[in-house]
């Protein structure tokens, strides 16, 4: 599997990272080096093997579905680059 410039551009878009046009060829080259390394996985016989989903075979802890925390608006907004009137502020989303 080889990654071309078009694919590199698409991946950058999906990852929401602006990549200048002139950097795309080098990026595609790096992807190809990494994916070339990953290709080795194709050699392994994984017939009948279930993908690992949990590191240790244990049931995750459950708790009552109740409110345990809250009323922390000021703390939650304290680190926001732009907060107004108790909300996170972002550029206009809907025209």
């Amino acid at each position: 599997m080889s990654i071309d410039i078009e694919t590199a551009r698409k991946v950058a878009k999906l990852a929401r990272i602006a990549v200048p046009e002139e950097d795309l060829p080098a990026l595609a080259g790096e992807f190809n080096a990494i994916l070339g390394f990953i290709e080795q996985l194709g050699e392994v016989d994984v017939e009948g093997v279930e993908p690992m989903v949990s590191v240790t075979p244990m049931r995750l802890k459950r708790r009552e579905d109740v409110v345990t925390d809250g009323d922390r608006q000021a703390e939650i907004l304290a680190n926001a680059p732009d907060a107004r009137e108790g909300f996170f502020a972002v550029p206009k989303v809907v025209e």
């Binding site: 999906l14 996985l41 194709g42 993908p51 989903v53």
Partner: peptide, 20 residues
């Protein structure tokens, strides 16, 4: 990329099987 449609099985799921 490895999680994107069309590659999820070939890369991500295969890697999780190898992990097992």
């Amino acid at each position: 990329y490895v999680l994107s449609a069309g590659f999820y099985d070939a890369y991500y799921n295969r890697a999780r099987k190898v992990r097992a």
